[in-house]
């Protein structure tokens, strides 16, 4: 019954409309600054405008303090972007999360990505106390109950306007135990996730295997799955992600292509190397999107161009995904 409100939409967000209409969705990412200058957000928002259906605003990403996701989202909206607010369980208990969600909805946010959160030991406050009052599955259920049952986590009724979010969750096909990953996704769907954004994919065969299991379980019919991609910046960055970042798999072929990209360019010519790397990084990303698009069950793409928002337009354009559709 609740789902029949808002013209049949759960939230009425642009992202929801695009996905519901069957378009191949494009989301991007915007990282807030480690400072209080609104221009940092506005500048990135202008770069991303028109190339993505919605843009994730990270929440103290990698446990480094940044401008809040909700405040940044308000700024991004003022430039015409639709934000996906990211919310982690690391920094807030159930009271704080619900209070922030009421505020976010009141300020016009309609998409929410529910995350566990990177561990604080990675960030710039490693001696902080983490919260994890809820885990991401419980957070999804809480947001769904707020929307569909009109109640807080404790069961009390929400007074007046109920926050109606299009609920997102993350999935990492490259984490272990691999056998458990599709089931974990199923739990998130059962808890109430409407869309999924995956970890960065640099191992398409493994992603394909993951999606096969997801499709066999019928999950792709219950949730929109957006595959996570991102342009590599350099061969060093590719190696670093392959060797150092927990929960990632980067196939050697990508590292090798990034190494080959600067072949013949003298080491001193930093600018030319940078250009060559970036061109190849964007090219690989475009090819990945084309390959991933063919995989059954993939409803869209989530482009994470971290501190390189300028790369999103050529990627989306190169993948033949411009102009972005509009759904009334």
């Amino acid at each position: 019954m609740a789902e029949e409100r808002a013209n049949g939409y759960k939230s009425g967000s642009n992202l929801e409309k695009i996905l519901r209409a069957g378009h191949f969705a494009v989301t991007a990412e915007l990282g807030p600054p480690q400072g209080a200058d609104p221009e940092d957000i506005l500048r990135k928002a202008r770069i991303l405008k028109g190339v993505a259906d919605a843009v994730n605003i990270t929440d103290n990403q990698t446990a480094i303090v940044r401008m809040s996701s909700i405040a940044s989202g308000v700024l991004a909206m003022s430039e015409g972007l639709e934000p996906v607010v990211q919310m982690t369980c690391r920094d807030r208990n159930r009271l704080a999360i619900q209070a922030d969600l009421l505020g976010a909805y009141a300020l016009g946010m309609r998409n929410l990505l529910c995350l566990t959160g990177d561990h604080q030991s990675f960030g710039n406050h490693p001696t902080a106390k983490n919260v994890h009052d809820l885990d991401s599955v419980q957070l999804i259920r809480m947001v769904k109950d707020m929307r569909d049952e009109g109640c807080f986590q404790c069961g009390d009724a929400i007074k007046g306007v109920v926050p109606r979010f299009f609920i997102g969750a993350a999935a990492n096909p490259f984490g272990d135990p691999f056998e458990f990953r599709p089931y974990r996704l199923a739990k998130k769907v059962a808890a109430g996730a409407d869309f999924i954004q995956t970890q960065l994919i640099y191992d398409i065969p493994r992603f394909r295997e993951f999606m096969k299991r997801v499709v066999d379980m019928g999950l792709h019919e219950k949730v929109y799955i957006l595959a996570g991609v991102g342009p590599l910046k350099s061969s060093g960055a590719a190696r670093y992600m392959r060797d150092k970042v927990p929960g990632m798999i980067v196939r050697d072929e990508y590292v090798e292509r990034m190494v080959a990209a600067i072949k013949g360019i003298p080491k001193e010519d930093k600018k030319a190397r940078r250009e060559a790397w970036r061109k190849t990084g964007i090219q690989i990303c475009i090819e990945q999107i084309q390959e991933i698009r063919e995989i059954e069950g993939v409803a869209g793409i989530h482009i994470m161009a971290i501190e390189w928002e300028e790369a999103v337009r050529p990627i989306v354009e190169g993948a033949g995904l411009l102009p972005r559709p509009t759904v009334e």
Binding site: T116, D135, Q138, G175, F180, K187, G247
Partner: peptide, 9 residues
């Protein structure tokens, strides 16, 4: 309480 985070590898 509901399974591993994305950082388990």
């Amino acid at each position: 309480l509901n399974g591993p985070c994305g950082g388990s590898q």
